[in-house]
Each structure stands twice: as structure tokens, then as C-alpha cells.
Simulated assay, not measured.
Amino acid sequence: MDDLTNDRARLPGNFFVPEAVAGLIWAYRFREGYPPEPLQPGEVTAALAAEDGWLWLHFNLTDRLAQEWIGSFEPLPEQARKPFLALDDTLGLHAADHVVYGVIADFHGELGEETNQIGRLRFALTDRLVISGRRRPLRSVDEIRRALQGGLNVPVAGALIETIIDRFCDAVARRIAVMTDELDAAEDDVVDDRATNERLRVVEVRRTMVRIHRQLYSLANVMRKWDGRPNETAPPTLHIAAGRLAARLESLDHDIQTVQDRARLLQEEVAARLADDTNRSLRALSILTALLLPGSLVASIFGMNTHDLPFLDTPNGFWYAAVVGVIATALFYWILKKVGAGLRL
């Protein structure tokens, strides 16, 4: 009876993991000296009961049954289960009863395509188990799954979270490179006086960088706080290199702010060029309107239906009136030049 009690304390999976795990997207078992082993839902119980290695269980949190399963998974403390059940998307990293849990950021990955939309990965890890969940497919997490299929091995549970954040940083670096190329192309067009079509491009760069900056800044703060917390005795398997990750996130955030500054300056220059083009167009319209005023005045005078109009009964009177209109326009133009109105378009 005592042996059974000890087994139950050591192997909670025998009692908390059913044969079919609701909402389970994938499961992997990691053992020293072996490649990662993909598991079927029915194999999770036996894997948890084994005394070597550790497991990664990844869930779809839009599945209500998956939330119920995680919510009733008693080996995790209640605090560690709350992020999976809540709608709060605040980034964070916490510890309770030798369990590390929290919420980190990752790019959405729809059908293998990279997007600029950022989602959330919720996770909880012990020395022998990592449970993670998302509501929409995430790019970095899926990349790691494909890497595991290709032979990537993750030695300890804590290293999995590090690897996910590193992949997220790689994705951010790629986007910074793409946005920098976009700014370079827009800047070339502005220098070549082709700024008309560059406004939307620069605005999109700024919008993307602002969104990513918010996530990097928050995640870097989370890692920095975690790195600065009081030292506690915890298994090495739960160690997360928060200081290194914070430094990398802050470096990327600095690059993003550089791109933002360039985009802001370029946006101001594009706006100035467009405003200058608009002013030139309005100036041209104003000049043409002004030059037509004297001729219009002459035409209006000769169009009055009254007696004693000049040239009314004179042969070629129309042409005389036209000459008067041209002379009035030329005189008006000379006056404007004389007062320094500057009629250059």
C-alpha cells in the first residue's frame, strides 16, 4: 500500500491524463541520448509515468475541453493554470511551487506564412513537463516543431522557452531587415522626386515597427525583472537565461527605434514634398486665374447690353476688343512683375 502511495505521488500522470487528451495539438518526449519522440494522445500517460526525460504538450486553447483539462490538471498549482483560462494577454513570467509559468509573445503563422500580427503563447513548465497553449497558430512554435522533426533536441524543459523566444527574436530581426529595405526604396524615390506613392509605404513601416516595439519592450522588461529576482533554489532544468534574452530583446528594440526614427523623418519629408507639390499646383492655378481676370473684365464690359459700347458699329470691332483684352492682361502681368509678385510656377 505504501509503494502504491509513493507511485501515485511520483507519477501524477497515471491519474490526471486520460487516454484522449482534449485539444492536444502535439506531444513530444525528450530523453537524453534519443531524438525527440512524437507521441499520440494515448501514449502521454505512459510517458508521464516514465522516470526519464521530459514531455512537451501543446494545446489549442480555443477548445473548451482543452481548457477544462488544463484547469483540472492538479500537478500544476492553481496560479500556473490561470493564464490558460484567462483572456488577459499581459506578458509575464512567474514561479510557484517549483513551476515556472507565464505568457510570452509570438507572431501568428497562418498556413506557414509570416504575418506582422502578434499573438500569445501561454506556458507552464516543471522539471519533467512543459504545457503550452495558444488560440491561433504561432510561427516560432511551429518552426520549433518542424525543427524537432528534423532532429533538433532540447536538453531540458527550460531551454524550450528560451528556444521559442530566440526564434521570435529571429523573426523580429527578419522583419527589421524587410522594413529597412522598404525605407531604403522609399528614400530613393523621395530623393529622385517620386514621393507621391511613398506615403503609404512609410506609414505601413511605422505601423509595423510600433506594434513590434510594444511587444519587445514589454517582453524585455519581463525578462529583465525575471533576471533580477532574488535567487531561489530551483532545479537547473527550470533555468531560463533571462539576462541573455533581455539583452537580445533590448538590442532588437533599439534597432526598431532606429527604423522608427528613419521612418518618421522620411514621413515628414514625404509630407513636405507632397505639400510643396500641392502648393505649386495651387500657385499655378492662382497665377492662371489672376492672368485671366483682366481679359474676363474686358469681355464682361463688352458683353453688357447697353448703348454707347465702343466698337459696337465699327468694322472688325471684335478684334479690337480682343486686342484690348490682351493688352489689359499684359499690363496686369507687367504690374505684377513690377511689384515682385513672382509668377514662376
Rank of each mutant, 00 (worst) to 15 (best):
L312F: 13
I256W: 08
G228I: 04
A195H: 05
E43T: 03
R207E: 02
I176P: 03
E19N: 11
H239F: 09
E51Y: 00
K338H: 15
R207G: 04
I327K: 12
A47H: 01
L61G: 00
P41F: 06
I131H: 03
L288R: 12
V17Y: 00
N231L: 13
F59L: 04
G158P: 02
R146N: 10
R120L: 02
D52N: 11
P35Y: 03
D181T: 13
E232H: 09
A173Y: 10
S286L: 10
A234S: 14
G243M: 02
P35S: 12
G102T: 01
V190F: 10
L121Q: 08
L312K: 15
R175G: 02
A9W: 08
A66F: 02
L111I: 13
D97Q: 10
V298I: 14
L55N: 02
R8N: 13
P83R: 06
G158T: 06
K337N: 15
A290C: 12
W56A: 03
V141W: 08
V130E: 04
A186K: 09
A105R: 09
P75F: 03
F311M: 11
I118G: 06
A50P: 01
N6C: 07
P155C: 06
D261M: 10
R224L: 06
T208K: 09
L121E: 05
R206I: 08
V130W: 02
H307D: 15
A330Y: 12
Q67T: 01
R262F: 03
T233E: 15
L297Q: 10
S251L: 11
Y101E: 02
P137M: 10
W334F: 15
E43D: 08
G342E: 05
F123H: 06
L24P: 02
A46P: 01
F16K: 03
I240M: 05
R167F: 04
L216D: 02
N305R: 07
D170Q: 06
G92M: 06
A186Q: 09
D89K: 14
G13R: 00
T314K: 05
W56N: 01
V178W: 11
F332T: 07
E143R: 15
D189K: 10
R207N: 10
A157V: 05
T62H: 10
L76Y: 02
G340S: 07
W334V: 11
P18C: 08
D63L: 01
G228L: 11
G342L: 07
N316M: 12
T45I: 07
E143M: 14
V203E: 09
V99M: 05
